[in-house]
Nucleic acid binder design. Sequence first.
DNA 1: TAGATTGTTAATCGATTAACAATC
DNA 2: TAGATTGTTAATCGATTAACAATC
Lengths: 216, 216
Amino acid sequence: MRKENISDAVIRRLPRYYRQLSEMYARGVVRVSSRSLGVEMGITASQIRQDFSCFGEFGQQGYGYHVDELRREIGHILGIDQDHRLIVVGVGHLGHALLQNFPFARTGFSVQGAFDVSPTVIGTAVNGVEVRPMEEIEASLRDQPVDVVVLTIPQFVAQQTADRLIALGVRGFWNFTNVELSSAVPGVEFENIHFADSLLTLSYRIAHPPIKEENP
Amino acid sequence: MRKENISDAVIRRLPRYYRQLSEMYARGVVRVSSRSLGVEMGITASQIRQDFSCFGEFGQQGYGYHVDELRREIGHILGIDQDHRLIVVGVGHLGHALLQNFPFARTGFSVQGAFDVSPTVIGTAVNGVEVRPMEEIEASLRDQPVDVVVLTIPQFVAQQTADRLIALGVRGFWNFTNVELSSAVPGVEFENIHFADSLLTLSYRIAHPPIKEENP
DNA sequence: TAGATTGTTAATCGATTAACAATC
DNA sequence: TAGATTGTTAATCGATTAACAATC
């Protein structure tokens, strides 16, 4: 049964399925059952079948799933084949690292440009992308709208910069600023990478080792 | 009632509470009720009280919570005051960016060193941390054990490097490699920052705009 | 004191797991 | 065909929310 509202938990598992299936495909695996996929990923076969059934019927009784077909389907659901357009705003160390390393193309994004306020980086090129002055962003987005902005700027300008970009029509933010951004404009999506939060959960877990399992 | 087993969902909210309370403390706010904290954070007062009650009784009837006290308590729970020790393994663009930008001290970590295999970066210093050759890591960890390793290395050496470090006694990994690491050694904790997974969930959400609310 | 707000118990909601008829 | 495995419905489990007595 196709669901109307997919839960966040399901959505967050999709990239992992995609990753696992890509890896199996690269290994030459042709078919997989929910059971064996579950064993490899450490989740139940039930959950896998439930998750997939939110989006359609991709398997075949008695056979399982065709790895490459399922991989493509999930990629399609994730929007990987939609050629989303993206710019990087803030080319400090982190913005630079993402421009240099991150495989945007493999996640379906094409990098349309990079912007910064600092004269030191303006005019330089990172991985073939020229860094342009922030003042030009209005004109640039008018000419060439983008789907997503990568926000790698200092915390104290995060919300105001987001607001400025939202006014220019941006509806997706990949936010690295460790600030909780918000907008009154409907349909604006924020995806946060909170480095500090992540490290703190690790800090918690090493500070509180999980309770030893007594012999049952 | 103190709980034995804290759910992952609760743990992942703790850094956000800590962040919010720090921000309020910086603003000079002295007391806060679960209700008003909930309004600011967009969660229910019930959930806040439930979450806190896993760890103790930090409030006072009729008054609420003392912001700074609660902030310290949560920081303590997260292990921020434990002065954890950490090294960075892999000083490419991302490792460099983290060494340069990330406020390790503010999350309770002290950077003990950085390691890489590339002669280009070995011997350089990033933000006061000297990059040493990977061969020296055995000796270094024997002398100065660390709690956490930041893994910013290429995917194809991720698992083998993790195994090598686990054999040297490392029990915490902040993993940036987009590989699902695992270990048979009990008590080893992995915290993953999966950039690609994160961006793909954003891709999903902009590809599937949430269903418009009909006027009820 | 009266009002406010906690910590906790009970009720609800949603997500995960189990079971199974359908069928390749 | 018989065995395997799906998609889906039902059962279980856990997390969130509501309610309220205790009390500052």
